[in-house]
């Protein structure tokens, strides 16, 4: 499924890299707030669900070649985070749902990839 479809289906707010949503395929997801855990266990092409908003999440997503980052519970990514994500070409999406609900809905749509 493309990111664009996922964004529409889940009513996600897109904070940067809109122009890329159509072309990016999501091949599964990973949820986590511990950066070492995400570094070690997520896969390239995953959509990463987290409640971290600090600029370091962009470095992790970029190194792991994630499809996008989704920040949960309507939290606001820091300005630095958006700027870095724009430079690195990593879409930052925001959902109002709590993490458990959002992951459930993503799983319903794409399964494990």
């Amino acid at each position: 499924m493309t990111l664009e479809t996922l964004v529409e289906q889940l009513d996600l707010k897109c904070k940067c890299c809109w122009e890329k949503l159509k072309a990016i395929e999501v091949n599964g997801g990973y949820a986590g707030d511990l950066l070492s855990d995400v570094m070690a266990n997520s896969q390239a092409g995953n959509i990463w669900v987290t409640r971290q908003v600090h600029v370091n999440i962009v470095a992790v997503a970029s190194l792991k070649e994630h499809a996008a980052i989704v920040i949960v519970q309507g939290a606001n990514p820091e300005k630095e985070t958006i700027e870095r994500a724009t430079r690195e070409g990593i879409p930052i999406l925001v959902s109002d749902l709590p993490e458990f609900q959002l992951v459930g809905r993503i799983y319903q749509l794409i399964g494990n990839g």
Binding site: D33, L34, L35, S36, D37, M39, A40, T50, Q52, H54, N56, I57
Partner: peptide
Amino acid sequence: REMGFGAGMGLANIRKY
């Protein structure tokens, strides 16, 4: 820890990889 670091997995993961 607030930034998501400090899980105590870093060195273990380096060794594993």
